[in-house]
């Protein structure tokens, strides 16, 4: 029962570890250079999954303030504000901030999203460079099977 509970409340960590290990296995064991890169991509994506799941909060929304919070419309009720701004009054930044009430639990944690944007970019860059290297290897050796390449190096000696 305890195990079941651990599985159900912490399933995100189990999933990320399983996916990550699939990627790691492909990176180490595959003979084909492109398959290794696919493994690398899976491996990095698993880490992104891990980070993003850290920032999840039960009942919270995306980390962007509500439109009403940032553009409070004086004198109008919440529903009327949607139909259009008739009034020209724009409250200054200080006025908005003074009336601003933000409940931290309403919004997801923004930091993991920022960090993972970086990790995604790094993943794309690494994958691109890896594919370029693979293409050059294919151009030079005529194969993307690691064993065949090593053999052709040996026979060249």
């Amino acid at each position: 029962m305890e195990l079941l509970e651990a599985l159900s409340t912490k399933f995100n960590y189990w999933i990320y570890i399983i996916i990550m290990m699939i990627g790691l296995y492909a990176m180490i064991s595959k003979n084909n250079l492109v398959k290794k890169l696919i493994g690398m991509s899976i491996f990095q994506t698993a880490i992104i999954l891990f980070y993003v799941s850290i920032g999840v909060k039960e009942g919270a929304t995306i980390p962007i303030l509500y439109h009403d919070q940032v553009h409070p419309s004086h004198g109008y009720s919440h529903h009327k504000a949607d139909t259009g701004h008739i009034e020209d009054h724009h409250p200054s930044h200080e006025e908005i901030v003074a009336n601003l009430l933000i409940e931290p639990d309403d919004f997801g944690n923004p930091l993991p999203h920022v960090l993972m944007l970086t990790a995604i970019v790094v993943g794309v860059a690494t994958l691109g460079v890896g594919l370029a290297l693979t293409q050059k290897i294919y151009r030079d050796f005529g194969s993307i099977e690691e064993s065949e390449i090593l053999e052709s190096i040996k026979s060249a000696k």
């Binding site: 290794k36 690398m40 890896g130 290297l133 050059k136 050796f141 190096i153």
Partner: peptide, 11 residues
């Protein structure tokens, strides 16, 4: 040979 070495380094 360097290209292959760089690939291994990348992984």
């Amino acid at each position: 040979r360097a290209t292959l070495a760089a690939y291994k380094y990348l992984i």
